[in-house]
């Protein structure tokens, strides 16, 4: 797969990831990778935070839409 954003700019760059929201392929330059805390479980047990964070990858347009 190729990077969608690069393609719109007329460049032909291989994608290294897929945005989990819109599904576009993105290259290293056009992705945003964030570590997210994950809480598991709940009523009637206290929920527990996983000891490690989980990475989430978005494309830049989706990241901007969510985080402004």
């Amino acid at each position: 797969m190729k990077c969608y954003i690069c393609a719109t700019e007329g460049k032909d760059t291989d994608a290294v990831a897929i945005c989990i929201v819109c599904g576009m392929g993105v290259c290293m330059e056009h992705l945003v990778r964030e570590e997210v805390e994950v809480w598991e479980g709940g009523y009637p047990f206290p929920s527990k935070k996983l000891s490690k964070t989980i990475p989430r990858i978005l494309c830049q347009p989706c990241y901007t839409a969510y985080k402004g």
């Binding site: 809480w39 479980g41 709940g42 009523y43 009637p44 047990f45 206290p46 929920s47």
Partner: peptide
């Protein structure tokens, strides 16, 4: 409060869950 403490709000529920080793 369910995700915070489990929201037992009842000693009988706390004891019941402890007996089956879930608390």
């Amino acid at each position: 409060l369910g995700h915070v403490s489990g929201c037992h709000i009842n000693p009988a529920v706390t004891v019941g869950l402890a007996v089956i080793k879930r608390f």
